[in-house]
C-alpha cells in the first residue's frame, strides 16, 4: 500500500454511524446478512423449525395431553404397516391425485390450445378461468357441497332432465372420488390454462408453418412439435399439480363433513388422516410419522417425474 496520509476523521456519533454504514455497504456480505437475516429467521421459525420438530416427534409416542412422552424409535413407523385407514387414505390419495392431475392438465391444455385460435378474446377467458383459482377453498367447497346435495343440489336437478335418477355424489364411495376430482379440476384448471398459454405462445409461429409445409396434420403438430417444445412447462405443471393434489385437505374436509342433514361418505385422504390422528385422537407422534411418509412420497414422485421428463441427451 502507498503511504497515503489521510486527514483526521471526525469522531462524532453521526459521523461514526455514517462511516459504519458506508463500510457495511462496501462490505457486501455484511449488508446481505442484515437485509436477509430477519426474513431468514422468520422462515426458520415458521417453516424449518416446525418441520424439523415434526420429524423429531415422529420418533416419540407424543400424546398432546399427557405429561410423559416416551421415545419409541421406529414404533410409529412400524404401526403404519398395520394401520388400515392409513392404507386406505394412501390409496385414495394416489387415485385422487392421478385422476385430478390428468384431468386438470388435459383440460387445461385443450383450453389453452382452443384459446390460441381466438387470440384477441383469450385474456377474457383466461380471467374467467382464473377466478376459481383465487377463490378460497372452504367457501368454494361449501358451494360444491350444495351443488352435489342429493335432494336439493343443482347437479342432480340438471341430470333429472335427462332422466337420470337421484345420485348420491357425496354418499356413494365411488362417486365421491369423481366429485372431489371435479372440485379440484374446477379450482385449478385456470392456473394451468394460463401457464400452458404462455408455453404455447413461446413457440414461434414459423415452426408450425414449417411443420404445415412438411405435411404434419394438426394432431402430429401437437404431438411432435408443440408438446416436445413445452416439455419444461409440462414438467413444472405436472409437478405442481401433483403436489397440490397430494396435499388435498380442505375440500375433502368440507365435502365429507357429516353435518346434520347432509351426511357424506368418509373419504379418507393422507392429510385428513394426519389431522385426525394429530388433533382428534391426539397421537401427535404418529401423525408426525405420517407427515414424514407424505413428505418422502411426494419427493419420490417429484424425482420420478423429473427423470421421466428429463431432456434425453
Amino acid at each position: 500500500m502507498s503511504d497515503v496520509i489521510l486527514p483526521p476523521q471526525p469522531s462524532s456519533l453521526p459521523a461514526r454511524l455514517a462511516r459504519g454504514w458506508a463500510r457495511m455497504k462496501r462490505n457486501h456480505i455484511g449488508f446481505v446478512i442484515c437485509a436477509l437475516g430477519p426474513v431468514l429467521a422468520l422462515f426458520v421459525v415458521i417453516r424449518i423449525y416446525p418441520i424439523a420438530e415434526t420429524i423429531r416427534l415422529s420418533f416419540y409416542d407424543y400424546h398432546i395431553t399427557r405429561r410423559s412422552n416416551p421415545f419409541v424409535g421406529l414404533g410409529n413407523y412400524a404401526y403404519l404397516f398395520e394401520d388400515g385407514p392409513f392404507h386406505e387414505a394412501l390409496v385414495n390419495t394416489i387415485l385422487f391425485s392421478m385422476l385430478a392431475v390428468v384431468a386438470t392438465l388435459l383440460l387445461a391444455l385443450a383450453c389453452a390450445i382452443l384459446l390460441r385460435s381466438i387470440e384477441k378474446a383469450a385474456p377474457i377467458y383466461e380471467l374467467l378461468f382464473y377466478i376459481p383459482v383465487v377463490t378460497p377453498w372452504v367457501p368454494a367447497s361449501v358451494i360444491w357441497k350444495w351443488i352435489f346435495d342429493p335432494t336439493f343440489g343443482a347437479l342432480n336437478y340438471a341430470l333429472s332432465f335427462f332422466g337420470v335418477a337421484r345420485l348420491g355424489w357425496l354418499q356413494d364411495p365411488t362417486l365421491i372420488l369423481f366429485a372431489l376430482v371435479a372440485v379440484s379440476v374446477w379450482k385449478m384448471v385456470g392456473y394451468f390454462v394460463v401457464i400452458f398459454g404462455v408455453g404455447l405462445r413461446a413457440i414461434p409461429e414459423e415452426l408450425l408453418e414449417a411443420a404445415d409445409l412438411d405435411g404434419a396434420t394438426a394432431w402430429r403438430k401437437l404431438t411432435r412439435i408443440v408438446l416436445p417444445l413445452m416439455r419444461p412447462i409440462i414438467l413444472f405443471s405436472v409437478v405442481t399439480c401433483t403436489i397440490i393434489n397430494f396435499n388435498v385437505f380442505a375440500p375433502v374436509y368440507v365435502l365429507t363433513a357429516s353435518s346434520q342433514g347432509a351426511p357424506a361418505y368418509d373419504f379418507k385422504v393422507l392429510v385428513g388422516e394426519i389431522y385426525s390422528n394429530g388433533f382428534v385422537y391426539y397421537h401427535m407422534g404418529y401423525a408426525g410419522a405420517q407427515c414424514v411418509v407424505l413428505l418422502l412420497f411426494v419427493m419420490s414422485l417429484l424425482i420420478v417425474q423429473f427423470l421421466a421428463f428429463r431432456e434425453k441427451k
Binding site: P150, T151, R166, L167, G168, Q171, D172, Q260, G261, A262, P263, Y265
Partner: peptide
Amino acid sequence: DDWALKHDTQGFANGL
C-alpha cells in the same frame, strides 16, 4: 333408508 336421502334430525324436520 337410503344414503342419498336427507338424514338425521334435518331429514326428520323436513318430514323425510
